[in-house]
Amino acid sequence: MFMSAKKLSTLLILASLGLSACSDDDEPMTMMPPDPDPVMISYDVTVTNLTHAHPLSPLAVILHQNDGFWAIGEMASPELEMLAESGDNSQLIAMADAMVSASGTGLIMPGNSETVSITIEDVDDANLTIASMLANTNDGFTGLNGLALGELAIGGSWSGVGFVYDAGTEANTEAMGSIVGPADGGEGFSEIRDDVNYVAMHPGIVSMDDGLSTSVLTQAHRFDNPAMKVVITRTE
């Protein structure tokens, strides 16, 4: 168990008050409570792409204190829609609820991993959100939403997996020109919402090989849960 920086500084102030109360000489008080050094809390977040043929868009890694950045049954934010339809994480990681954010350096190809480091000052009980688009979908993404990190001690690790969600902002037509990933090279973000307009678990892609004649996707683009493996290690 680690004392939070706030508690620590309170104790230091009380200690110094205690000293001054005991001193009864006339010397001017010279001892000031030291400015506590900020406590840096850092995590390494390693994501492995478990899909067969979906590049994962550059990771959005966010530390925050609200519940999370999406909820099943609720409308996706425009920032999440942007990530889920185009793979662009810049709006999501800039949201006001994000205390600290980091971005992956690029696509994580199937079978590959990337480690993103993120550091926050004086907050040892932040929640972690990760999000990344499955590039060969209309608006599918994987992630972790508001994982509580408060019980992770220095050197400790958490590992788990990410399911695939559907932002519900773009119909899963799989049609030519509608998917941003390399299977199509089509349109990314569109502000038109022509789907259920709530976030849900993704129903999976159909593909031209499994009965959707207008799909640009093939059997190779099918996926199942989970889509990513995640290991989080607190490094300081």
Binding site: N172, E174, V206
Partner: peptide
């Protein structure tokens, strides 16, 4: 097939 499929869970 684009509406009524699902994946577990």
């Amino acid at each position: 097939n684009t509406v009524h499929r699902w994946l577990n869970p």
